[in-house]
């Protein structure tokens, strides 16, 4: 069923408001992300990127409309949907007291893998992400770049069809950033849809095929990256971003 779906994500007439009404909300939001592409979601601070990520991954529930992931409605603890995607949050979302291997064992089991699958995937991922030598050392002693790689490894342990990445390269050196980007490109080549947010717009130009820019809970532009730049008469995403969202500080 999921394989026949043309869209990795289909958001239709989605409305969302935080209970306290203070934070950003969405009204009648529509967005479609084709399967197998690299999609970038950009916006200034407070625009609603993380909220939208949380809605797409089912961490938050919509008030109106629907969000479908590979044709299945997302929602709180929807087991069927939750096996289809992986999530790499902006924060280090693992147990710092544990080693990379121990973290992968735990999150792999919670993702529904068997012991054998966990063992094989752990070996493979630690090798690819250059963490073999430190596989049994507590993550709390790692550098920021190493922690980012562990964060990424956990998100892809179960070979998800769709991978959500919330600023996956923030605070890392050039080498680590290159390694992460290269790995993400390989993942995409093997069929994984990437849905990515970042403030690194140069990086986004290298990674993304299609983008959407959101501000104050609304999509202000979307489409193929070249088409969007052409339509707005800009040569870089950064210039387009400033042009569309202004120069004022955002909180």
């Amino acid at each position: 069923m999921a394989a026949d779906q043309p869209f990795a994500i289909a958001i239709e007439h989605m409305g969302f408001r935080y209970p306290d009404n203070a934070a950003v909300s969405f009204a009648d939001l529509n967005l479609k992300v084709e399967k197998g592409i690299r999609f970038g979601l950009f916006g200034p601070n407070g625009a609603g990127k993380t909220t939208l990520m949380n809605l797409m991954t089912g961490v938050l529930s919509v008030n109106e409309g629907s969000i479908k992931l590979l044709g299945k409605e997302t929602g709180k603890q929807n087991k069927e949907v939750n096996t289809l995607f992986g999530f790499v949050p902006q924060d280090f979302s693992f147990y710092q007291e544990l080693s990379p291997a121990e973290n992968l064992e735990f999150f792999g089991a919670w993702a529904g893998l068997t012991q054998t699958e966990i063992t094989n995937r752990t070996d493979e991922l630690l090798h690819i992400l250059g963490l073999e030598d430190v596989r049994n050392k507590p993550v709390e002693k790692f550098s920021g770049g190493m922690k980012r790689r562990v964060n990424l490894a956990i998100g892809v342990i179960h070979n998800p069809q769709v991978l959500f990445l919330d600023e996956p390269t923030v605070g890392v050196d050039v080498q680590t950033r290159q390694a992460i980007i290269n790995y993400l490109l390989k993942l995409n080549e093997s069929g994984t849809t990437l849905i990515y947010t970042s403030h690194q717009l140069n990086e986004a130009e290298d990674l993304c095929e299609q983008i959407a820019m959101i501000d104050e809970g609304k999509i202000i532009t979307q489409g193929h990256i070249d088409d969007v730049l052409k339509a707005h008469n800009h040569d870089s995403l950064e210039n387009l971003f400033i042009n569309l969202t202004g120069k004022a500080y955002r909180n």
């Binding site: 089912g58 603890q77 949050p89």
Partner: peptide, 16 residues
């Protein structure tokens, strides 16, 4: 912690 956000996206109930 961030780990809880990730746990909520996995196909296992937090009751486990």
């Amino acid at each position: 912690s961030g780990s809880f956000i990730r746990l909520k996206t996995l196909p296992t109930n937090y009751l486990v």
